[in-house]
Structures are given as structure tokens and as C-alpha cells.
Amino acid sequence: MDKKFIIAMAIPAIVIIGFLSFKIFTVTTGQDILLEIPRPVDPTDLFRGNYVNLRYSISNLNLNNTQIDYNFSGDEIVYAVLSKKEKFWTIDALYHSRPQLSENQVCMRGEVTSVYKNQIHINWGVESFFSPKEQAQEVEKERWRSNVSSIVTVDKYCNSVLKALLVGNETVQMR
């Protein structure tokens, strides 16, 4: 077989397998944490169908009540240290670089989308849950009861993958 053809095939294969492996690494080596979702909604992605758009309690934070290393501005990468409180995991501190963790802590990496006065808005990359249309609408109905939370897996490098939604006591999984 032509050498050029083999190289041509190797490049997309490496990109696809690399992307897949990166996510599999997080799912298989990470730790599951439960995050509170006050308000999910269900828009549509042109390429990927229906999804539930999730806004977490940790998406908007008051900087007066959160420990930070120094001031944040929009578009910056942010690392959060989280620990388990009563039911949900919440943020203890925000940093500009990967933090040292104690035994009961995990970290998540996100991107600051805006900072206004004391409020910081962060995108954690786990805000979309893909599901069939009917399922997405069911989840949306539950939002009025504040009954939705999500199971997120985080690895030691602060990467996260959204594994499932918890609607009441029922687990909603894509796979």
C-alpha cells in the first residue's frame, strides 16, 4: 500500500483515537462526584441533537465567599478545589494553576466566562447532557422541583466528564 495513503489515514485515526482515549482515561481513572443543578434547560445542537443545558451551583460564585489565589478576569483558565459537603460537592478555593490536593479533595478545570463585581461565572465543560428529545423534556420538567443533579467524573489532572444525570433518585444515562 502507498506510503502517502498510510500517512493520510494515520492522521485522522490518531486524532479520533487520541480524543477517545483522553476521555476514556478520565472516566476509568477518575472519581465520581455529585454536583447540584438548580436550573437545567433543553436546547438543540445542530450536529448532535437534543441536549440538556446544565447550570450548576458552582457555575456562578460570589468571590467574597470563595478563597482565590489572586484576581480572575474573563477567558482565564481556572482550577477549583472541591470537597464533599452534606450531599453535594462544592468549591473550597479557586486557583490559576493546578492545585495540591488533600485526601478528600478533587479538582476541576474550567474557563472564566465573565467577572462582574464580586460574581464570577465559570464554564466547567460539563454543561451539556445529550439525550433523546423526550428524555430532555422530562428532565426540563423536573427543574421546577429543583430535583436534578449530575454525576461528574474528575481525574487527577482536573479533567472532567459528565457521566449521568440524577433526576430524583433515578439515574439518566446516555449509554
Binding site: 476521555k23 454543561e127 447532557f129 445529550f130 457521566k163 446516555m174
Partner: peptide, 8 residues
Amino acid sequence: AQIFNVEA
């Protein structure tokens, strides 16, 4: 991306 719920 859809399998792993990567942001829309």
C-alpha cells in the same frame, strides 16, 4: 463528543 457529553 456526544458519548462523553462534551459541551455542545
